[in-house]
Design a protein around this nucleic acid. Structure first.
Lengths: 259, 259
DNA sequence: CCTATTTTCTTGTAATATGAGATTATTGAC
DNA sequence: GTCAATAATCTCATATTACAAGAAAATAGG
């Protein structure tokens, strides 16, 4: 359910929002139908988005996302402090264990992998960089949600209770909150085979200014590489890394404000 | 020199255009100065771009590109026919030679790597995915420019003659055009150490509908891996791959139009 | 070359984007 | 916690300009 665009600027953005994983190619006719814009208006919008490179079209093909996106992604990788601060820790954990280490950003009400390194041969994640992941399944989502302020947390769980039920996180809002409370106590989340069978996930929240987490640092590792006592060790390392990334972000903010 | 934005939609896009490799972080004050927008207008624009995820801001930090970019890049990788059609050929060439194979798109008046695979240990390209490359230096630029229609080609060379001179492609427009003519005759371009010393580049144009190339398929390989006669062999393979990618694009168009 | 389709241009009109200033949130310091 | 300073948003009257309908132009395909 898309929020209705109320002005021309939002209507322009709305064009880009219909390009989703389910539908990556749109003809002008289809866009008119979907968005409810008149023909000249739609073409005006398309022209602007095409000129700026966000969209491209080829003869006999609908419109698809354009190369500007690739360029912006490159710029983002050079500017995102989370990625810049987190990369050394991805390296470190992936070097120490045969695992996949991920940086996952909290974005809207989704979570999104923004960087990862894998030292395991079968690193086929079903959630690669850029693909929104479910919030309710796996350690990553919980590691973030558990640390949201109550006033955001409770409505979120209420709204998405069915997801949490399906993921086995509890049948009532209270039960889900209880589970999250223990994550909050420990400071990190662990999940056994929730996303991929046979894979253990560790995740700890990354904070920016203070109250609300903005991302998660996570490690996925084959279950048979993790005998009982090692669980604690890895969890501690993940927690430590997340803490140090948070500190790095804070120090960057400070650098900026005192320039 | 940015083209002046004439309407509010273009002014909105213009905000994103100031985020470049030279300047990845902007405060509202700086943006007001740079773009000449009033305070409320700028904040209106920033709100929209922030809500749509294109920009983010953290306390005490300016605005930077946001996670929406990462998500869109994921979607693009799933939808761009050039990437989809080209990937098997990147695999193939990188498997056969110790090299880096690239797909480079012609975009505005720039060229941009949109995908690459490397089988060489030192694959440190100074032009990774998403970073615009110079047109006048290296095989890739020439492999595209040489096939532009004359009415676009001549003004382009005239406008950028200094670059071509600096790259040693000729001192006059005629000399540059002559060099390109031979590329056009062979169907591909070869460059010895133009971008990186000791590295040979091969590139052939990829066509869409017909006249004008839209991209280039390219292989970079260490010069001492390429004894004389092999040059011809690799060039032929690159040319073949580019041709087959072009054909794949055409067949996709056909599939669409006859659905 | 010509026809069919796609895209862009006109135009008057109604909608709405704009900027100045005031107001309200946020933040950082004490 | 309170307060000052800064940052972000709101209000509102006005002029700007985005809009739809149809027509024209550009582009593809035969």
């Amino acid at each position: 359910m898309r929020k209705k665009a109320v002005n021309s600027l939002e209507r322009l953005q709305a064009v880009l929002e219909v390009f989703t994983e389910d539908r990556l190619e749109w003809t002008p006719e289809e866009l008119m139908e979907e968005l409810g814009y008149s023909r000249p208006t739609l073409y005006r919008y398309l022209k602007i988005l095409k000129d700026s490179g966000f969209l491209t079209s080829m003869p006999n093909t609908g419109f698809t996302l354009g190369p500007r996106v690739v360029e912006m992604d490159y710029l983002l990788r050079k500017s995102d402090n989370l990625i810049l601060s987190g990369a050394p820790y991805l390296q470190k954990l992936a070097g120490r264990y045969e695992c996949t280490a991920l940086l996952v950003r909290w974005y809207g009400e989704k979570i999104l992998c923004v960087d990862s390194i894998s030292s395991s041969r079968e690193a086929i994640s079903s959630y690669p960089r850029g693909r929104p992941m479910p919030l309710s399944r796996g350690a990553i989502g919980r590691s973030i949600v558990a640390f949201l302020p109550r006033r955001n947390l409770v409505p979120l769980i209420k709204r998405t209770l069915d997801e949490w039920q399906a993921a086995g996180a509890g049948d009532t809002v209270e039960a889900v909150l209880d589970g999250l409370k223990s994550v909050r106590k420990k400071g990190y989340a662990v999940a056994y085979g929730e996303v991929t069978p046979g894979v253990v996930g560790f995740a700890a929240p990354i904070f920016d200014a203070g109250q609300s987490p903005i991302a998660s640092f996570s490690v996925s590792i084959a279950q048979d590489h993790v005998p009982g006592p090692v669980v604690e060790v890895i969890a501690r390392e993940v927690l430590l890394a997340a803490g140090e990334i948070s500190a790095a972000l804070a120090s960057h903010r400070h650098r900026i404000s005192s320039q």
